[in-house]
């Protein structure tokens, strides 16, 4: 059977394979190469070794964006996961209207980042109007604005995944524990949490990478203001590329560093939480 399918390579695999080369492999490989070049377009690239990489940290903007992004990621990962888990715990109990609540909390997730950014700009600037300021007044305002937006968008999504995880905990384990007389806190800490560890792995992974790679919301909500101080890494890279002539190589080198950081986070996070999962 394998051999008769094999002959059909051009029909089954080739279209995806070609598109994958055009859409991913070629741009990725060229991206790596161009990070070692000086260029303004693909055809005029000149090899210059590691010069782009040494320039990355020369102006401090990348370092600032790196810290700003890291702080943003840590804060959002913790808040989103804690609140989403708490809501999921409550909404798996029998509460009137719980399906409506689930529907409402999940909804913001379907709205795109650009649209979300402008929706929240209106609301947050309206609130800040009371103290005579706007989001672009300082990077701290922008930071918390982004945190609030991100929570609003992601809590519902993570809640759905946690609810699925909690509903998967076998009822007989819960009953056995209740017969043994464990209290609510022990039930949560020793039984529910270890059993939903796979959901926690997925949710921390998703929130980590979503926050770290955030672009659209940042562009729409603060646009980096004031003077690039509320710029996350992705926006910083984008602006190095398209905002400064002659800096394309540095932009590409920044993108490579960005990719390596994301890859390390993804692998490390996966190892760390997978180790805590229990066999079900």
């Amino acid at each position: 059977m394998q051999n008769s399918i094999k002959k059909y390579f051009p029909v089954f695999l080739l279209p995806t394979f070609l598109a994958f080369i055009i859409g991913f492999i070629a741009p990725f490989a060229m991206g790596i190469y161009l990070s070692f070049c000086k260029f303004t377009t693909v055809t005029d690239a000149q090899f210059i070794g590691f010069k782009n990489y040494t320039k990355i940290f020369s102006e401090g903007d990348f370092t600032h964006a790196l810290w700003y992004t890291s702080a943003f990621t840590v804060v959002t990962v913790i808040i989103i996961n804690v609140i989403a888990f708490a809501i999921a715990l409550a909404l798996t109990k029998k509460i009137k209207g719980r399906n409506t609540f689930r529907t409402v909390f999940f909804m913001p997730n379907l709205i795109g980042g650009i649209v979300l950014g402008y929706i929240w700009q209106l609301l947050l600037n309206g609130i800040l109007l009371n103290v005579g300021k706007t989001l672009s007044y300082s990077a701290t305002y922008g930071f918390w604005g982004l945190v609030i937006l991100m929570c609003w968008q992601q809590i519902g999504y993570m809640m759905i995944i946690y609810i699925a995880g909690i509903q998967n905990v076998p009822g007989d384990i819960i009953e056995a524990a209740q017969v043994d007389g464990v209290n609510k806190w022990q039930m949560l800490k020793d039984i529910i949490l270890p059993m939903v560890m796979p959901s926690i792995t997925v949710c921390t992974f998703l929130t980590l990478t979503n926050s770290f790679k955030l672009f659209d919301q940042n562009l729409a909500l603060t646009n980096g203001e004031p003077s690039n101080m509320s710029e996350l890494l992705a926006l910083n890279i984008y602006r190095t590329f398209y905002g400064r002539n002659g800096w394309e190589g540095v932009g590409q080198a920044k993108a490579v560093v960005f990719f390596i950081i994301v890859a390390i986070i993804a692998v490390a996070q996966n190892k760390l939480t997978r180790a805590k999962e229990v066999e079900q």
Binding site: F24, A26, P27, F28, V42, T209, F215, A255, V256, F259
Partner: peptide
């Protein structure tokens, strides 16, 4: 592997291609 690569990594070259 492609799932963990951020879009910024390929955005310039992809748009040129």
């Amino acid at each position: 592997f492609s799932m963990i690569v951020p879009f910024q990594m390929v955005m310039f070259t992809l748009s040129k291609i």
